[in-house]
């Protein structure tokens, strides 16, 4: 915490520069996010339809209370947490490994960097088509798995496999972006340290744990926090796999997909309930982020 440290003599003028530097961002945020957010927050206490606002009425906390007895919402919440719990660690670890590979003395660095990054810029349509091709009942993945005695499963159709499919898709397409982030983070570490700690055996791995990981702390904190924020709002993958329905049998229903289906799939729907769900999700993510910040801050006074 800043108060604990002694303030240097130049700190006074910093306040002016501080406000100056954050002003453009804060004005844009106020206009384009906070203002519509206040509007949406008001809606969460109403029964409100955009096309017929004259019929709007306040309903108090009814929308929030309704969420607690909504089984589909609970299911969506469970799915979303499962998704986040798997995707965040896996994508962080793979991104970091890819970054280490590209930062090592490997031959053809540029090729690897481009190859690993390409999934992040491949169109969702191509990715969707490929996954349909790979993961259908007679697809390559099933044929491969059958060599090891697994039964062939219909990934898109089976309620127990559709969510894992979303996870695989998400990880596949997000690790490239994470790799770029960690590559930038690794640049702040002198190359001699990195070379010494290259993954080339147990010793190297230990050095990696003791030297590189602590130095990457701010980047990892960033990756994990934004990873959790992003995955708890997962929409695209669930939408692609289920074609928007959240099926089969709500197994790919996520919170944001549910919000979308409640408020935006039908013309002139009641916006009060989806708005309330959005603020419930907001409260959950906000709490989790505060906890993480505490956790990371505790481990590193210097940041």
């Amino acid at each position: 915490m800043p108060q604990k440290r002694g303030k240097p003599s130049y700190a006074k003028k910093d306040a002016v520069w501080g406000y100056l530097f954050v002003l453009p961002a804060m004005i844009l945020i106020a206009v384009w996010i906070i203002y519509p957010m206040i509007f949406a927050f008001r809606l969460s206490f109403m029964n409100f339809k955009y096309l017929t606002p004259e019929k709007a009425r306040y309903v108090g906390f009814a929308n929030y209370i309704r969420a607690f007895s909504d089984d589909t919402f609970k299911k969506a919440l469970t799915n979303t947490f499962k998704y986040s719990l798997i995707v965040v660690p896996v994508q962080t670890i793979i991104s970091l490994l890819l970054a280490l590979v590209c930062n090592s003395r490997i031959k053809g660095k540029t090729f690897f960097k481009v190859a690993y990054y390409i999934p992040s810029i491949t169109s969702a349509l191509a990715v969707g088509t490929m996954f349909k091709f790979l993961f259908n009942q007679q697809g390559i993945i099933n044929r491969f798995l059958s060599n090891f005695g697994f039964h062939s499963v219909s990934w898109f159709e089976d309620p127990s496999y559709a969510l894992p499919l979303c996870m695989i898709m998400a990880i596949w397409s997000s690790v490239g972006g994470g790799m770029i982030l960690f590559l930038a983070g690794l640049q702040d570490i002198p190359s001699s340290v990195i070379e010494a700690a290259q993954v080339d055996g147990a010793n190297g791995f230990q050095r990696f744990l003791k030297i590189i990981l602590p130095l990457l702390r701010p980047t990892i904190f960033f990756a994990v926090v934004t990873g959790i924020i992003g995955t708890l709002q997962v929409f695209d993958q669930a939408y692609i796999v289920s074609r928007g329905s959240g099926g089969p049998l709500d197994s790919t229903m996520t919170v944001v997909l549910y919000i979308y289906n409640k408020g935006f799939r039908t013309t002139n729907a009641n916006m009060g309930y989806p708005s309330a769900l959005a603020f419930l999700l907001f409260a959950i993510i906000f709490t989790l982020t505060l906890i993480q910040k505490k956790f990371f801050d505790k481990g590193a006074e210097s940041y």
Partner: peptide, 9 residues
């Protein structure tokens, strides 16, 4: 079958 079961769009 549904098309998606046999890998078709």
């Amino acid at each position: 079958v549904e098309p998606k079961d046999i890998g078709e769009g």
